[in-house]
Design a protein around this nucleic acid. Structure first.
Length: 105
DNA sequence: CCATTGACGAAGA
DNA sequence: TTCTTCGCCAATG
C-alpha cells in the first residue's frame, strides 16, 4: 500500500465531494485496506484536502490528537456539504464515483 | 517473529 | 437504528 497513492487520490477529490477510506483503498486495488488508508491519513501531509475523507457511514472519524474536533465538519460545510442531525452527511450524495466522477444515482 | 492497536467496513444481534 | 464481533493492512512494542 503506497501511501503516496492515497494522498494522490485524496488530492483529486473535488470541492464539495467526499470519499470513504474503503473507497480509496478499493481505488488502489486494496479493497480491504481501509484501515491502512486511515493510517496513511494519520500522516497526511499539509496541503491535502484530508477533510474530504470520511468513513463509510458518512461520519467523521478523526481523533482530536492529530486534528481539532469539529474542524473537518466546518471545512466540509464551507464547501457546501450539508450534515444531518447525527453529525453525518449523505454519502450517497457527496460520495465521489471513480471514473465517472459524478454523484451516485 | 508474535501480539496489540488504530482516522475502517460489513455483517449479525 | 445502534452496538458488538470479526476481518484486513500497516505500524509499533
Amino acid at each position: 500500500m503506497a501511501f503516496e497513492q492515497v494522498y494522490e487520490v485524496v488530492g483529486r477529490i473535488p470541492r464539495g465531494r467526499v470519499m470513504s477510506y474503503g473507497q480509496i483503498a478499493a481505488m488502489l486495488d486494496r479493497p480491504l485496506s481501509a484501515r491502512a488508508v486511515g493510517w496513511a491519513m494519520q500522516q497526511c501531509p499539509q496541503g491535502l484536502p484530508w477533510h474530504r475523507v470520511v468513513n463509510a457511514s458518512g461520519g467523521i472519524s478523526t481523533h482530536e490528537m492529530t486534528d481539532p474536533p469539529g474542524l473537518q465538519r466546518l471545512l466540509l460545510e464551507e464547501e457546501g456539504v450539508e450534515f444531518s442531525a447525527g453529525g453525518k452527511l449523505s454519502m450517497s450524495r457527496y460520495r465521489l464515483v471513480p471514473k465517472s466522477r459524478s454523484r451516485k444515482k
